[in-house]
Simulated assay, not measured.
Amino acid sequence: MTRSVVRRPATVADAVRDLAELGADGAPLAGGTWVMRAPLRGVPVARVYVALDGLAELRDIRTGDGVVEIGAGVTHAELAAVDGPPALAGLVEAARRSAFPAVRSVATVGGNIAAVGFPEADLVPALLAADARVVLATPEGERTEDLATYLASRPGRPAGELIVRVVVPVPAGRRSAFERLTVRGGGEYAVASVALSVDLDGATVSAARVAVGGVEKAARLSSAAAAVLVGSPLDEATAERAGQAAANGCTAREGLDAPGWYRLAVLPALARRAAAALTSTPDDQQE
Rank of each mutant, 00 (worst) to 15 (best):
R143K: 12
A102R: 09
R143H: 15
T138W: 05
V92E: 08
A129T: 09
F178Q: 06
R157P: 00
V135Y: 10
E179F: 04
A177S: 15
G173E: 05
R174Q: 12
A95H: 07
A132L: 08
E142T: 15
V170W: 00
P119H: 03
L181Q: 15
E120H: 14
T138R: 13
A114V: 06
P101I: 09
L123E: 00
P139L: 10
P155T: 11
V92R: 12
G160M: 06
L147P: 08
T138S: 15
N112R: 04
L151A: 08
P158V: 05
P119I: 05
F178M: 04
I163N: 01
T108K: 03
L147W: 09
E142F: 09
G156T: 15
E161T: 14
T108A: 01
A102D: 09
L162C: 07
P169T: 05
I163A: 15
F118A: 14
I163F: 01
L136D: 06
S153V: 06
R154V: 13
R96D: 10
L123S: 09
G110L: 03
G111H: 03
T108C: 01
V92M: 07
S176H: 02
F118C: 12
L181W: 07
E145V: 15
S153C: 04
G117M: 04
V135N: 11
P125A: 01
T144Y: 07
T144I: 13
A132K: 10
L151N: 06
R180N: 10
L127E: 08
I113V: 14
E120L: 00
V135I: 12
L147Q: 09
A94E: 09
V92G: 12
R133F: 01
A130E: 11
G117R: 03
N112A: 09
N112F: 02
L181K: 12
A121F: 06
E161K: 01
A107F: 01
R97L: 15
D122K: 03
I163L: 14
V170A: 05
D131H: 11
V106N: 00
S176R: 02
L91M: 13
L91C: 11
A137S: 15
R154N: 10
R97G: 12
G90H: 07
A172M: 00
L127K: 04
V164M: 02
P119Y: 04
G117H: 08
E93W: 07
A130L: 13
L162R: 03
P119G: 05
L127D: 08
L136C: 11
A126V: 12
R97V: 15
A114N: 04
V92F: 12
V168D: 01
V103W: 02
E145F: 04
G110W: 10
R157W: 05
R157L: 14
R104E: 07
V170L: 03
L128W: 06
T138M: 08
V168L: 04
D122F: 06
F178L: 06
V166D: 02
T138F: 06
P125N: 06
G141K: 09
G141D: 10
A172L: 06
